[in-house]
Amino acid sequence: MSNLFNRERRRFEAFIRQHRPSLLGLARRLCARSSLEPEDLVQETFERAMPEFEHLKDRADSAAAAWLCTTMTNRFLDYCRRQRTESRGMPHLALVQDLAVSPEETQENWALVSTDAFQKAIERLKPHLRDAYRLHAEGKRYNAIAEHFNVPVGTVGSWLTLARRDLKELLLPQVAVAREQGATSS
């Protein structure tokens, strides 16, 4: 029994180690200048993952990451709703929902996108959009990117918005292909 215990524990630890850094990076941005602690948001997300781990552990990394992202987003939106309600002095019980999601309820389009597909897609962006987005993904703030390209800060915001729009357009059609392939192979 202790073997099962240790094996499950190690698998879950590995799962957390794999996904925690990227989730925490997102959480820090969402929680910036708020009373919500990014670590709490991430910790809660992994707590939600525990009862689903039986399903999550055997799924592709992209699917597990998408599930975690959906769950964390739900937790965050839950927090936003609660805060809004409290600031208006309304009872919040009806609005606060426990938004744990089942693996099937995750945003399934994103669950099918692999990191390889992403790397191919970013190479197809216009050079300035690709480079700006790479710098952003490395953690550079808008003003640092603006300085790098010697453009106004507002321009960086526009470039990133365009880069994201293009990435989405490049990636999500692949989902349809991936799904068709899944359908024919099954």
């Binding site: 990227s22 989730l23 992202c69 987003t73 992403f118």
Partner: peptide, 23 residues
């Protein structure tokens, strides 16, 4: 929701420094 999924994917694919967290 879309934006966060994309950002997460980017951070996983590109290994963004912003999310590097010493374990």
């Amino acid at each position: 929701r879309d934006l966060l999924q994309l950002e997460l994917l980017a951070s996983r694919a590109l290994g963004g420094a912003s999310v590097a967290e010493p374990l």
